[in-house]
Amino acid sequence: MEQVHPTRMELIKKNGQIKLAEQGRDLLRQKMDALIQEFFHIMISVSKSREELDIAAIAAQRSLCVAEAVDDLTALKSASFATKRALTLDIRGKNIMGVPVPLVERKTVTKSVLERGYSMIGTSGRIDETAERYETELDLIIGLAETETSLRRLGDEIQMNRRRVNALEQVLIPELKRQAKYIKIAIGEREREDLYRLKKVKKIIEQNAKKKKQTAASVAAA
């Protein structure tokens, strides 16, 4: 056990620390409950978006396969050269119970046939449909990037909170309580020792007084 001074001041200090730690634990628990509620709320939308993304990815893959087959791979690769590649997104941040989470700008990636950068002659509607399916998939990925990052950060925060609560509940508070108990026992012990010492002194004083009395009586008798 850590070196503690078994004094009343120390006991008052420890009791104060215990109270503060318990208050902190309760607050962290409340925060954790709120975070868990938010976590599940986001998780429902994430799992829904994930399902949508899976469906969109399968449709896009199938569409690409058919486009490759019907329009020829060279035509498809050529069209892919024409499409602009950079995608700029505006990402800001917001706070959920003190947890910073990203806020990705909901920009739709879906383009019209004129915006894709290739001429309509030599490309087909099938290539447009494939591009559109992948653009839809990209839209979903951008949306999911925001919610999944939020979910991951909330999850990390919940885990960290749980560790803090556990540390308070299972390490710090029991330790403080043990220290307070030790101080109480030490103070009690000291009080008992003092009482015994006082009684002993009293007895000695009484014995001395008795001896003095007897000596005085014997002197008088002599």
């Binding site: 019209s112 046939v113 004129l114 309509m120 002659i121 087909s124 509607g125 447009d128």
Partner: peptide, 11 residues
């Protein structure tokens, strides 16, 4: 084909 794509993409 171009007309159909123009209509679809509201050019």
């Amino acid at each position: 084909k171009s007309v159909l794509r123009i209509i679809r993409d509201k050019v």
